[in-house]
Structure formats: structure tokens, C-alpha cells
Amino acid sequence: MSVGDFIRNSQIWKSIFRHPAPRDRRNRVVVVLTNVFLHLHPVSVRKSGIALSYTWCMGGLTFFLFLVETVTGVLLMFYYRPTLEHAYNDILALRDVTTLGVLREMHRWGAHAMVIAIWLHMYRVFLTGSYKPPREFNWSVGVILLVLTLLLSFTGYLLPWDQLAIWAITVGSNMARATPLVGHEGPFASLLTIGDAPLIHSGSDARFLLLGGRFVSGDTLLRFYVLHCVAIPLVVAMLIAVHFWRVRKDGGISGAL
């Protein structure tokens, strides 16, 4: 008996995988059906639908990069404290002191790559017309995912708390104060008043809500940290589940009929 067979016949192995090795048709079906992760997939797919020339693997790559970001991100959270006192120095330590400081590089470059991958995924879905009925809704879910991915990237950009970070966020969030009606320099915001007092001012407008202050400060750092590490990832994870569920319920990956 070979070692492989010995392992496969052990009680431990059998308790985890409830079927013989996936070498014949029946067991190749069962392996997908009995495994909660593989069960994201259907059992069989159209050959052209999974061809690299069709999907460019970009949806899958986006998902994989999301997982990479989650893992490296959790590990980075052990080292990083989102306060004015510590933030910059913690990142500096990741570069100069920490043994696995390369995690920061992986997290950062993975984030950039995810943005590119998600654009290319959308590009492919458009070019193959895969948003057409019955997949309209899944396209819309995808657009929300796209927006959230950009927001994830944007909120993360602030965390190193260096010049690059705060000024990029300042430039980006300055837009919010120009929001029509609810930004204090936005069109017609001055029309909203209670008696003589303006309702919308720099301490009550959309930008204040986003930054937790009148300018990018320690409160902003905390706010972006929570959004970046908890709030947005949770929503994204949930929507990815919806997205995958719908790919299957809408009849699997699209293809020529």
C-alpha cells in the first residue's frame, strides 16, 4: 500500500473528505458537492465559459486579490495603530524593523492590482455583452462592488499618515464640501437656513461627516481605519457572495446560445 493510499484510508482523512479520491466521474461530482468552498461552483460548466480567452480570469483574480488583501490586512493590523502618535512610526517600523514588513508591500501592490483587475473584469463583461438579460442585476451588483473597491483603496491610502496620504485624501475629500445642497461650498447650500443661521456650514456638511472634522485629522484617521478594516470589507464580502450566487442562478457564465 502506498503512503497516499494509507493516508486516504485513515479514519482522519475519511472523516474530513467523505468520498474516495476524485479520480472517476462520480467522485469528481461528489467532491464539489460535499465541499463548502468548492460548492461555490456548479458541478459542471460549459467549456467555452471557463476558457481564459473568454473570462480573462479577471473576476476570479479580483476575488483572489480580495482574499490576499484580507489575509495581509489582518496581519498588518497586529502592527499598526491608527493614532496620530503611532501610525506613521508603525509603518516606518514595517519598512525598517519588522521581519515580515514585506506584508505592507504585498498589501499595497495587491490593492493596486485589484483595482486594475476589477476594471478589466468589467471591461470583459461589457465586451461579451454578459450584462444582458438575465444578468442585468448581477452587473448592477458588480458596479456597487466596483465603487466599494475604490473606496476601500481610498480609505486605505490615508493610513500610512505621510504627506502622500493626507494630501491625496485632502484633494479627494475636498470634493465633498462642494456637494450640491449638503456641502458648505456646494451649489445652493446657502439657501438652506434656519431663521438666519445657515444650516450647512463647514462644521455640519458632507465633508465634515466624511472626515470627522473640518480638515484631515486624527479623527479622520480613526474613521477611515474603521471603514477600511471593518465596515467596507464586510459589505464587500457579502456582496461578493450575492454576486457569485447570482452568476449561478442566472444560468452560469454566459456564452453563445
Binding site: P22, R28, V32, H41, V45, Y54, G255
Partner: peptide, 21 residues
């Protein structure tokens, strides 16, 4: 080009593509 009616099993065809990617 995309027209074909051949179906393949996810294990091994898809999972291995995913693994390699």
C-alpha cells in the same frame, strides 16, 4: 468562437485553472 455545447466537470477542469492562476 464562443459557441460550443461541450460541458466539462468543475473538478478537474476549473479548479486546476483556478489553482494555476
Amino acid at each position: 468562437l464562443e459557441k460550443d455545447d461541450e460541458k466539462v466537470l468543475v473538478w478537474p477542469d476549473l479548479v486546476y485553472t483556478e489553482l494555476i492562476c
